[in-house]
Simulated assay, not measured.
Amino acid sequence: MTARQLELLELVRKHAPVTGEQLAEFLGVSRPTLRSDLSLLVMLGLLDAKPKVGYFLGNAYAPENKSMERLHTVTVKQVMGVPVNIPEKLSVHDAVIALFTENANTLLIVNDNQRLVGIVTPKDLLKITLGHAGSTSIPISMVMTRYPNIATLLPEDSVMDAIRKMLLYQVDCLPVIVPGSDTKEPPEIAGWMSKTNIIRVMSDAAVTEQGDALQ
């Protein structure tokens, strides 16, 4: 955790319930400056918040929190999942079918060499199909967000790195890549990191902590 996030936890511990405006005043910064830090702490369960009341310590808070330690020590490679990939030549119609049949919330687009060339979300597909007759026949390559304009992770990144990127780019999942030696060639896809993977890591850590407490 950053020094500012630790300071926020200590301020909330001392002054809870405390508003975001009050925390910003304590630290001498603007309220928007703290938005990502507070979102991260709430997401991790270290802080909780109630509208018109303020922030207070969450259930996951503890002076020595093993769940937090695991977020820093466990790598993306250890917990990542398998993404749903589709060829870039597929149509929007086929992409919509893949989205539902695979129960996916995002699709990775690959070229003939199975390398990452783009990403598409349900929102992208909805925007192109609403009010556009014949749009379902458009190649998915015309709709996708192209690499390298995609937020990605490396297998060696920590779970905390994944959380920070998800908050920064306001996404629920990120592709995990292995860049090739040729910078002109798109990267290989190693896996997929989602909020579900992160929750599983924290849940496993919580179970371990409970087991340790009972011994």
Rank of each mutant, 00 (worst) to 15 (best):
V79H: 00
M80S: 06
G81Q: 06
V82Q: 09
V82M: 12
P83M: 02
P83E: 05
V84M: 03
V84W: 03
V84Q: 05
N85V: 09
N85A: 12
I86E: 04
P87R: 05
E88N: 04
E88L: 01
K89C: 07
K89T: 15
K89Y: 14
K89G: 14
S91D: 10
S91F: 02
H93S: 13
A95K: 09
V96E: 15
V96A: 14
V96K: 12
V96P: 07
I97V: 12
I97W: 08
I97F: 04
A98P: 06
A98Y: 12
A98F: 11
L99W: 04
L99R: 11
L99S: 09
L99I: 06
F100W: 12
T101R: 12
E102K: 15
E102L: 09
N103F: 13
A104F: 10
A104S: 14
N105G: 15
L107S: 05
L108F: 07
L108N: 01
L108S: 03
I109A: 07
V110F: 00
V110G: 00
N111G: 01
N111A: 00
N111Q: 01
D112S: 03
D112G: 00
Q114M: 10
Q114S: 14
Q114N: 10
Q114V: 07
R115P: 01
R115D: 00
L116I: 03
V117R: 02
V117A: 00
G118N: 03
I119V: 15
I119S: 07
V120I: 07
T121A: 07
T121W: 02
P122Q: 11
P122L: 10
P122I: 12
K123D: 13
D124L: 11
D124V: 08
D124E: 06
D124S: 10
L125I: 04
L125S: 06
L125E: 07
L125T: 06
L126T: 14
K127T: 07
K127H: 09
K127F: 04
K127W: 02
K127E: 14
T129F: 02
L130S: 09
G131P: 08
G131Q: 06
H132I: 05
A133W: 12
G134S: 01
G134R: 05
S135M: 05
T136E: 12
T136S: 06
T136P: 00
T136Q: 13
S137W: 06
S137V: 08
I138F: 07
I138T: 13
I138N: 12
P139T: 03
P139I: 08
I140R: 01
I140S: 05
I140D: 07
I140V: 14
S141D: 05
